[in-house]
Computed example of a mutant assay.
Amino acid sequence: MPCFIFVEPSDDGWIVRGDFRDGPLMFSTGARAEQAARELAHRLADAGEPVILDIRLRNGARAGRFLFPPHVAETQAPLALRA
């Protein structure tokens, strides 16, 4: 079962939340929140977890959804697929 990570607006900026150990992460900009979410998704995929990253716009509409498959030892480049 994949791990889900969400990037969405909050009252004070942007939040990254999902199926990971740390509580929600707060950011002042959407760009920084998305960057942190992608880095987290890559780390989880490197650890063998499939990840789905769902990014929302300020109005709540979906900006993008990406699948990060579990890392395969023979592949050197990080991989993300638009879902």
Results as ranks from 00 to 15, higher is better:
residue 48 G to K: 12
residue 82 R to G: 01
residue 12 D to P: 01
residue 64 G to F: 07
residue 63 A to M: 09
residue 49 E to T: 07
residue 61 A to L: 15
residue 50 P to C: 09
residue 9 P to L: 10
residue 19 D to A: 12
residue 66 F to N: 04
residue 45 A to W: 09
residue 5 I to W: 00
residue 6 F to S: 05
residue 36 A to H: 05
residue 74 E to K: 11
residue 6 F to I: 07
residue 55 I to K: 03
residue 40 L to V: 02
residue 59 N to L: 11
residue 17 R to Q: 11
residue 32 R to H: 12
residue 2 P to N: 07
residue 9 P to G: 10
residue 54 D to G: 00
residue 68 F to T: 03
residue 45 A to C: 04
residue 31 A to L: 09
residue 54 D to P: 04
residue 62 R to A: 14
residue 8 E to W: 04
residue 55 I to Y: 01
residue 67 L to Y: 11
residue 68 F to D: 03
residue 50 P to W: 13
residue 7 V to R: 00
residue 66 F to P: 00
residue 41 A to K: 10
residue 28 S to N: 03
residue 79 L to C: 07
residue 32 R to Y: 10
residue 20 F to Q: 00
residue 81 L to D: 10
residue 55 I to H: 03
residue 77 A to P: 02
residue 70 P to Y: 03
residue 28 S to A: 02
residue 25 L to P: 00
residue 40 L to Y: 02
residue 52 I to N: 01
residue 78 P to G: 08
residue 71 H to Y: 10
residue 14 W to G: 04
residue 40 L to G: 06
residue 80 A to W: 04
residue 73 A to E: 09
residue 74 E to F: 06
residue 36 A to M: 13
residue 7 V to A: 01
residue 18 G to L: 06
residue 33 A to Y: 02
residue 35 Q to Y: 11
residue 39 E to D: 15
residue 29 T to W: 06
residue 83 A to F: 13
residue 9 P to D: 07
residue 29 T to L: 14
residue 47 A to T: 08
residue 50 P to K: 05
residue 61 A to R: 13
residue 3 C to K: 10
residue 74 E to V: 14
residue 72 V to H: 11
residue 81 L to V: 13
residue 46 D to L: 10
residue 27 F to S: 09
residue 67 L to R: 07
residue 39 E to H: 07
residue 48 G to Q: 02
residue 17 R to W: 02
residue 72 V to S: 15
residue 34 E to N: 11
residue 80 A to E: 15
residue 63 A to I: 04
residue 43 R to D: 10
residue 12 D to G: 07
residue 59 N to M: 04
residue 76 Q to R: 13
residue 59 N to H: 10
residue 53 L to E: 02
residue 58 R to L: 14
residue 9 P to R: 05
residue 80 A to H: 08
residue 66 F to S: 10
residue 62 R to S: 14
residue 24 P to Y: 00
